[in-house]
Write a protein that binds this DNA or RNA. Structure first.
Length: 266
DNA sequence: ATGGTTGTATAACAA
């Protein structure tokens, strides 16, 4: 590792106010250059900004009362940002927040969960993923250093769910979602975790409702750090940190991080 | 088990 690896991390916190001590502890220890949060479940004015600022982070928050909500923390001040798609379409749900910092675009998304393949929310999820591809096409170029990260709510491959036979066709592991995710990723994204750890079964989310779900490893890999080729080529590591998932009062997700040597960017 | 738990508008959703 070089002296200054540049680190980005993603964490679906399932309520930032309920998770504040856990997130602060993890952030103090890991000190990523950028931390993307999803499901903060509060308005921007209710986000506990001060303890993060005391740790030296700049904050961008796109909040929503009770549901959804995303935030991006960064050690340096963002150089630019996108709050929502900004494409003229519906932008009421707080699910997208992007910043450019240290010359890297970091796009943080909380992709709709989809509820059930027969629910209208499922099509909304597919539409969100398609709209994201158009967002990437219109704002960036695949030759740029771009990271798409967050809770994507789709397990890409059978290895990414605890029981691929039983879960085939369920929300989160439906062929249509997997195909739509591939289509959006085809703009120019590499799944860093899978590229670095082929064949490894490692989840990022374990449903609270399955008793002993974490211990029995009944999980899903649905939180991702996806990067364009230039960043992928200087990636130093990408892994899942399960420690916050076994702490007291855990989120149902756990952080995923990736490190890069930006000085070697082509 | 059309179950289970958790966070938020502390009632009923959403996940």
């Amino acid at each position: 590792m070089p002296l200054n690896p540049w680190k980005v991390a993603t964490f679906n916190v399932n309520g930032i106010r309920a998770r504040l001590p856990l997130v602060l502890e993890w952030l103090s220890r890991e000190r990523p250059d950028v931390l993307c949060l999803q499901e903060i479940k509060c308005l921007e004015e209710s986000f506990p900004a001060h303890p993060f600022m005391e740790l030296g982070y700049s904050l961008r928050v796109r909040g929503q009362k009770s549901f959804n909500g995303v935030a991006v923390l960064s050690l340096r001040e963002p150089e630019d940002e996108f709050r929502g798609f900004g494409d003229g379409g519906e932008d009421a749900e707080a699910r997208l927040l992007a910043i450019r910092v240290d010359g890297v675009w970091v796009v943080n998304t909380y992709v709709p969960q989809g509820r059930d393949p027969l629910d209208p929310a499922f099509q909304y999820k597919l539409d969100f993923l398609s709209r994201l591809k158009r967002f990437f096409e219109s704002r960036f170029h695949p030759s740029m250093p771009v990271i798409w990260t967050g809770d994507v709510n789709v397990a890409p491959e059978p290895l990414d769910v605890f029981d691929p036979e039983r879960l085939d066709g369920e929300v989160g592991f439906h062929p249509d979602e997997r195909a739509t995710l591939r289509e959006t990723m085809s703009w120019g994204f590499v799944d860093l975790f899978r590229r670095l750890h082929p064949g490894r079964k490692q989840f990022t989310f374990w449903d609270y409702r399955l008793r002993g779900g974490f211990t029995r490893n009944l999980g899903w890999r649905i939180d991702h750090v996806l990067a364009t080729e230039s960043l992928s080529s200087v990636c130093l590591g990408c892994d899942v940190d399960t420690e916050p998932r076994v702490a007291s009062k855990p989120s149902d997700h756990t952080p995923v991080w990736a490190a890069f040597d930006l000085s070697r960017l082509p």
